[in-house]
Structure formats: structure tokens, C-alpha cells
Simulated scan of single mutants.
Amino acid sequence: MAEDASPAATPRGTPRTPKYQVIRDRLMEQIRSGTLSPGCRLPTERELADRFGVTRMTVRQAITTLVQSGMVVNRRPLGNFVAESLCGVASRRVVNLVCVGSGSEDAGVFLEHGVAAARSRGIEARVLQAHAGVEHLAVATVRGPDPTVLIGGPGGAHRELHRAVHTAADRVVVVGVRMDHAGIASVVGDDALGIRLAVGHLHGKGHERIALVGSTPEDDHPTMELQVELWRQAMDELGLARGTPDRHVIRLEPVPAGGTAMASKLAVEAYHRRRRVRATAYIGLSAETGVGVLAALHGSGVRVPRDASVVGYATHLRASLCVPPLTGIDVDVGGHLAAALDRVERMLSAEEGAPVLPLLQVVPPFLIERGSVGPRR
């Protein structure tokens, strides 16, 4: 029926998807579902134009994109046909893995685990790293018909991507950032538990002056402020918040090169120059931050773990290759992706009567002990 095939009305204030993309996506859905089977002739341009209420030129643009993708073959003068090579496409399951901010040290870890986890479930994973210059590809991917796991969230700097995620909320899962308040499925780690594990582990070794080293060179980053507050609470629970513990909060400054590790190294070196009474233990809020802290302490003649201890995050391979190997909080990448793919499978199956998954799923971290923490001397 024409009413079923026409694009749904767009709510006021929601960015409109170009009409040719709506037609393309609707035809792709019909091809993937088997409604339009391999070898089947597509409706004529005039029929599609009448069905969608658009011009034939708009329909032609949509079909051209399908021909370019290999899903449709043009056989003049007979018309346009679903490619015979797509036999079995109805049973193919696809997920987009889009990583925002591919410069992050954890981006490769999440993508590698994501591809392997999807493959183990019989799902084809398409990977895109949305670094500067290719944001438009991420926007087009999210607006497409296949579900997307967005690693890192759209962020304020990616306005078009942010709009696309809201428009496609029913087929997007965000990992690492909470967007459940906007009706978007989210999988996040338990930051409070992670910091409590780090503080508790160091306190158990006799450390009381425990510094927190930021994970971002943006001083006003909201995540950093949240982590500082969680650190204060963890310190207070153990009676370690005497005086002004904020003097042991080490914030990073932007550096021209070297990334977070270099920014952390420079920040800790500056802290050592300013403070006579220094921390005996440090918590770095990422694996790269922990690496930078170790480098700064080594450069200052501080022996780890004999003179000072360091806890970072253990997700990245570099954490295990440091000297000494970095004790760290493991955010459980596998747990994050398993939760995200559980929801993706629900999207792909569209099974009626299936239990409703909560919009927010929190994955607990755990501590990996290596060689960078020792008793306070």
C-alpha cells in the first residue's frame, strides 16, 4: 500500500533526511528482508515517484546509489533489478561499529573486540573510525538501515552526528557515554566502582596521599569533573580527605604532540616542582595517563613501586609493557560489547514478545594487579 511505503512524518526540530536517502533505505530494507528477492524487477521510476510523492529525478538518484553499491543492476530497456549476487542477503546480519575520536588509545581495542564478538554471533561488522574529515561518513552510516554501535558517543563537537543518533535512536547503541535520558540505548562502565577499587587498593598498601591525574587536556571536561568528585567520595569513605585533597588533583594541559601520555608526564613533572609534600601514589584515569605518570616519576628519580605507586587503566596493551607493568582498572571491554551486541541482536531479530532490555546497562570493572604498586615505605 502507498501509505505503508511513504516516509514517516518528521517531527518538528528533527533534521530531515534527504528524500533520495529515505527511498534508498526503504528499498535496501526490502532487499535485505527478501521482499524484493534477487533477480526481482524494481517498481518503475514513475511508480516509485507516485508512491513516495517525489520527482522521478529524486527516485533516479536513489536507484543510482543502489546500482553503485552493487545491490541493483540496471538492464536497459527492461528496468532495474535486484542483483542476482545477493542470494542469501535476507539472512545476512550486519552491524556498524563506529568509533568517535579514533585517536583514543582504547579505540583500536574496542574495535578489535567488537569485530571478533560480532563474528562469533554470525554478524558481519563494518568498521568506521570517525576522525576529523570523515564525520559525514559516520552520519550517513548511522542514518542507514543497519544497527550501529557507536563507541565513544557523538560528543558536542560532532553536531550532525549527534542529530543523526537522535533521529535513528531505535537502531543505535552508544558505548561509553550515557544517552539513555534521550531514549538511546547506552552501555557504560561503573566509574565510581573503578575509582573506589583504585583508591582502596592503594590504601590497603598503606598509601594516604593519593593523587588523581586527569585523562583529558580539556580543563573543563565534564567527565574529568565527575571523576574528581568520585575520587573525593572514595577518599572520604576511607577517611583520607583531611585538609584540602584537591591539591593532589593533577590536571593536564594541551601539548602540541605526544598525546595524553606526554601531557600526563609534563603535568606530573610540574606538580613535583610545585609541591614539597607530594603524593605517594597516583591514579591515572586512562592507560596512557598511567604511562605518562610512570615516565615522569622515572625522570624525577622516583622509583616505582619502591618510592611511589601508580594505578592506571589496563585496557590498552601498553599498560602491560611498561616498566614496571602497570597495575590498572580493566573496564571489561568484552562485557561492554556483549551488552551492546545483545541489544543489536534484538534489533535484528525484531522478535515479538521478547523481554525488553533496559536502556542503560552498567558494566562493572575489575582490578588487574601487576608491578606498579607496592607498600608505602
Rank of each mutant, 00 (worst) to 15 (best):
D180T: 09
A192T: 15
P222W: 04
G155W: 01
R232H: 12
S186M: 11
V165D: 02
D170L: 07
V175Y: 08
G156E: 01
A241P: 04
V172S: 02
V188M: 08
D236H: 14
D180K: 10
A164T: 02
H158I: 03
H181M: 00
G156W: 04
A211W: 06
G194Q: 13
P217M: 10
W231C: 11
P217Y: 12
A164Y: 03
R232T: 05
G153W: 01
G206Y: 03
G183K: 01
G194H: 15
L240W: 12
R159Y: 00
V172W: 08
T216H: 05
Q227I: 10
S186Q: 09
A182R: 04
G239H: 12
R163E: 04
G194I: 11
V188R: 05
L238T: 02
G183D: 03
A185M: 06
D190L: 14
E225A: 13
P154W: 09
V177K: 01
T148D: 03
G200Q: 11
L161A: 02
S186A: 13
A241Q: 09
R163N: 03
G243V: 09
S215P: 04
T223V: 14
D170N: 10
L161P: 01
V213D: 07
S215N: 11
E160F: 11
R196K: 13
E208S: 14
E218W: 05
A192L: 15
R171L: 03
R196P: 12
V187F: 10
M224R: 05
A157R: 00
G194Y: 15
H181Y: 08
T167D: 02
R163V: 03
P147L: 02
G200C: 11
V228W: 03
G214S: 15
T167V: 14
A211Y: 07
V213E: 06
L161Y: 01
D220F: 00
